[in-house]
């Protein structure tokens, strides 16, 4: 079959015949089909409840999908933009005469440029999403094993953040509170409520780790030294 002229935007004085040999085109076509099938199947397998066929394909091609970082569902602000965002408030204490540090993260004052602020925001959102998951599982009395796994995952991440703060400040104690900042209905804002109204912030109780609420962590240097890695059974 003769090769037809090529794409519309090519210059008119060009020799536009297809130049790759048939074997090369066949080999490249197979590679393209496999790649694009996976590009499509990865998000398809992530939509709840998820396509078993897509899941099977992706699972069998995990080395390619994971190592190549095409393991994304593209759920930007989906299924709904969050009705809240999460912050963390941490308190760092010292046994010597250094003053206690209390900060909120993310903070435009502390993290600059905006991209760095957003990276910190994603850290707090990750912790918040794990906490929301624990809440959700507890709300409908999910199987105990599932709830325990979610709580371990939450605790592990909170502990990791706490360890970082202890080390970064050479501190002796640190506590972390998770703060949920609710987005008010626009009708409330029309009525004069501000977006940073104090009533929109919910702080979850400090220590010990709340099973029915959101994470809270308080660890000290001796605990840090003795701490064992916390097993995670199901990490997406």
């Amino acid at each position: 079959m003769p090769d037809k002229p090529a794409i519309e935007d090519a210059a008119t004085d060009a020799p536009l015949a297809i130049r790759w040999s048939r074997p090369v085109r066949v080999a490249v076509s197979i590679a393209l089909l496999i790649h694009l099938t996976l590009v499509f199947c990865v998000p398809l397998s992530m939509v709840e409840p998820g396509s078993p066929l897509a899941g099977w394909l992706v699972n069998n091609m995990r080395p390619y999908v994971q190592a190549g970082n095409i393991s994304h569902g593209y759920a930007f602000f989906a299924p709904d933009p969050g009705r809240w965002s999460h912050l963390i408030r941490y308190k760092i204490e010292f046994d010597d005469d250094r003053a206690t540090i209390e900060r909120t993260m993310p903070s435009l004052d502390q993290q600059w440029p905006r991209l760095l602020y957003h990276r910190h925001f994603m850290l707090t959102e990750q912790l918040g999403s794990l906490a929301s998951r624990v809440d959700e599982l507890n709300s409908f009395e999910a199987p105990a094993e599932e709830r325990a796994a979610a709580e371990r995952e939450l605790r592990a991440l909170a502990t990791s953040y706490a360890r970082h703060l202890l080390h970064a400040h050479a501190a002796d104690r640190v506590s972390i509170d998770l703060v949920r900042h609710n987005v008010p209905p626009y009708i409330d804002v029309r009525g004069g409520r501000t977006l940073d109204d104090e009533s929109l912030y919910e702080t979850f109780p400090v220590s010990p780790l709340a099973t029915a609420g959101v994470s809270v962590e308080r660890i000290t240097q001796p605990e840090l030294i003795q701490a064992e890695p916390i097993p995670l059974e199901e990490v997406p």
């Binding site: 794409i7 536009l16 790759w20 085109r25 490249v28 393209l32």
Partner: peptide
């Protein structure tokens, strides 16, 4: 279909 596939993927471009 085959010709279309070839044009779509394998036509040289700038």
């Amino acid at each position: 279909v085959l010709a279309g596939w070839n044009r779509f993927w394998f036509a040289p471009t700038d």
